[in-house]
Amino acid sequence: MLDDRARMEAAKKEKVEQILAEFQLQEEDLKKVMRRMQKEMDRGLRLETHEEASVKMLPTYVRSTPEGSEVGDFLSLDLGGTNFRVMLVKVGEGEEGQWSVKTKHQMYSIPEDAMTGTAEMLFDYISECISDFLDKHQMKHKKLPLGFTFSFPVRHEDIDKGILLNWTKGFKASGAEGNNVVGLLRDAIKRRGDFEMDVVAMVNDTVATMISCYYEDHQCEVGMIVGTGCNACYMEEMQNVELVEGDEGRMCVNTEWGAFGDSGELDEFLLEYDRLVDESSANPGQQLYEKLIGGKYMGELVRLVLLRLVDENLLFHGEASEQLRTRGAFETRFVSQVESDTGDRKQIYNILSTLGLRPSTTDCDIVRRACESVSTRAAHMCSAGLAGVINRMRESRSEDVMRITVGVDGSVYKLHPSFKERFHASVRRLTPSCEITFIESEEGSGRGAALVSAVACKKACMLGQ
């Protein structure tokens, strides 16, 4: 009897593995994704193909990295998701002549009506938060230079001027797309009239992360975010950046690689679950690469896999709870928690219980395998993109072996128990001629924006502006 049951459990697990095998990517698959990513990057950089390229390769006008001589107080704003952060950054000489960066910050959550109302409502709310922060720190009387981390696709015309191309991540505030974001912020500050600010720089969160990590390690020339969304930036040779005049030196390019796949480059790798996630998203047909990796989508992918296993009578005796059938019910943090389970399955059992399920031991094991399959594919897909960037940098610099540091931020990278190990191992397999160091950014977005502002202020002083 026991043997029969054991055989049935083994057969069930084997069927589960057959279904989950769809998520496995072979090294040849990853090399294919990497080569296609490089081709799209090239198209994004070139003037004649930029418009139709899915990977936009947006110039950021960040050319210099901090040298350690900029000092002063800077205000930093960070808008990239449902939370908005205001930070005071003091850049100065530390002990023994070292450079020191001290920060104080406060988080504000953005109400739904500000995210989806008008641009005026959104930026009025942001300036209200700045006003509140300055009151708390008794700094209303000071006109501070301000660095703005704005983590949406922007076409820069200068370091302090950028046109919002399109909202992502659930934002829909009308009247912002096609307009200068810094102008919208300046107008809102003017409307309030109770404080003055000098907006000197606007950067993407990947750029802010790279600059913040450069402060720790001067070989950091790539910034990457794996959180709600997924994106990367890197220092490109100016001669390859056709959208900006000049051939000397390097400029940081914001790849906006989340949109890779929007022209069909990933079609052969998309599964039924991916198509369902895409169809029910706020932007169907867009940001397809990001939807395979980002935390906004990972939990939902797992939920759809679990429903398939229920329908195949391989999980929960073929019956799903009402909660499990509800879109968004299986949160991405559950994926991390399930994979963090120590082996007694308590954590998995508790999560499934909150979803109205009474799982068996085998159910718990199957749910864990589903989570591992989805998150491992995410790590491997992400590795193909980064390997594409790094191999490109090595080739354009004609280096036999390139040493490089990548600064990384984002909740999936930082909080998932195995993502970074799987990701690092896969990147290294795909970049055999590179020695890569990964560092995690601390308060990256805010500190990085302030350091970019410090560079901009120093330049302005040198130019006598």
Rank of each mutant, 00 (worst) to 15 (best):
M34T: 06
R392N: 08
R155F: 05
S340R: 11
F334P: 09
M139N: 06
S441F: 00
D205W: 05
E442R: 14
E300D: 13
T361M: 11
L243P: 09
N179K: 15
R447W: 07
E157K: 01
V305H: 15
S69E: 11
V181C: 03
L20D: 06
L315M: 09
G178S: 05
V241F: 00
F330S: 04
F152D: 02
F260E: 05
H424Y: 07
R392W: 12
A259V: 01
T228I: 04
K90G: 12
R192H: 15
Y108H: 01
Y289F: 07
K169G: 02
E177A: 00
K31F: 07
K90Q: 15
Y61K: 07
Q323A: 05
E93V: 06
I189E: 00
S321Y: 08
D217T: 15
G261H: 01
M298P: 12
K104Q: 13
G175Y: 00
M251E: 15
D278E: 06
D132G: 04
S76P: 03
R327V: 11
S174N: 02
M238P: 01
K291W: 03
M41T: 12
L25V: 08
M251R: 12
R429P: 11
E40K: 05
K414A: 12
T209F: 00
L306S: 06
G227M: 00
T332F: 01
V310C: 08
L315W: 09
S426E: 09
H105K: 02
E120W: 07
S69W: 14
R447A: 08
Q26D: 13
P359K: 09
S100W: 08
H50S: 05
E112G: 11
S426K: 15
E22F: 08
V33M: 09
H50P: 03
L77D: 04
A176N: 03
L47T: 12
C129L: 01
S64D: 14
K296T: 05
A259W: 02
G299N: 04
E272A: 11
R368Q: 11
D158S: 11
D4H: 07
E443V: 07
G343P: 11
R275F: 14
L144V: 05
A232Y: 03
V374F: 00
F269R: 07
C461T: 12
E67A: 11
M381F: 11
G97H: 08
E112P: 10
T342E: 09
V310N: 13
T209W: 00
V335D: 09
F152T: 04
A208S: 03
H50G: 06
T82V: 02
C213T: 11
S100D: 14
S453W: 01
N83G: 02
L301F: 13
E319A: 09
G464S: 11
E128Q: 02
N254Q: 04
L2F: 11
D78Y: 07
M197Q: 04
D217Q: 15
T361R: 08
I293E: 09
L352Q: 03
Q219H: 14
D113C: 09
L77T: 03
G72Q: 06
S109K: 09
V16Q: 06
K90H: 15
N350F: 15
R358L: 13
E245F: 10
L45I: 01
M34Y: 06
A450S: 01
C252N: 07
V244L: 08
F316I: 10
G81Y: 05
A201T: 04
R85M: 02
M115S: 07
V277I: 08
A384N: 00
G92M: 06
I189K: 03
A21C: 10
I351H: 07
S441V: 07
V452F: 11
F269N: 12
R5G: 12
Y289N: 06
M8Y: 10
R85N: 01
N240S: 15
T65V: 09
I130W: 05
G285Y: 08
L75R: 04
R191C: 01
L185G: 00
E331P: 08
G193F: 06
V89K: 04
E395H: 07
R275M: 12
T60N: 02
L144N: 08
L88I: 01
G318D: 12
V33N: 04
K102F: 05
T332W: 00
T437Q: 13
R327C: 10
E322S: 13
L301G: 10
I348A: 10
Q239I: 14
N240Y: 12
A21M: 05
A387Q: 07
R5F: 10
E120G: 08
T49G: 14
R46K: 09
F148W: 00
S321R: 13
E112V: 14
I211K: 07
G388I: 02
S383C: 07
L134Q: 01
E237M: 10
S109L: 03
F195Q: 06
I189A: 00
Q286T: 15
V408C: 07
E221H: 09
K190R: 10
R155P: 02
K136D: 14
S453A: 15
I163E: 01
I404Y: 09
A114Y: 10
R303Q: 06
D113H: 11
T437L: 14
G229A: 06
L288T: 15
K346S: 15
S398K: 15
V374K: 12
W99E: 13
Q347N: 11
S321Q: 11
L185C: 03
E395V: 12
Y234S: 04
H141E: 07
G246A: 03
H380D: 12
D124E: 04
G147K: 02
T116Q: 05
E290I: 00
R5T: 10
E290G: 02
W257F: 04
I351P: 05
R422S: 14
A259F: 07
R250G: 15
C371I: 06
D29S: 12
D124C: 05
M235R: 08
L355R: 06
L79F: 04
T405P: 07
S54Q: 13
R250D: 15
I366S: 09
A232R: 04
N231F: 01
R192C: 05
G44S: 00
G183K: 04
D194L: 10
G223A: 14
A114I: 05
A176R: 01
T65K: 14
L314P: 06
D187V: 03
W99F: 14
V338E: 01
A6M: 12
I159D: 00
L357P: 06
T376N: 06
R43D: 04
M393R: 11
A387V: 04
V226R: 02
E14F: 10
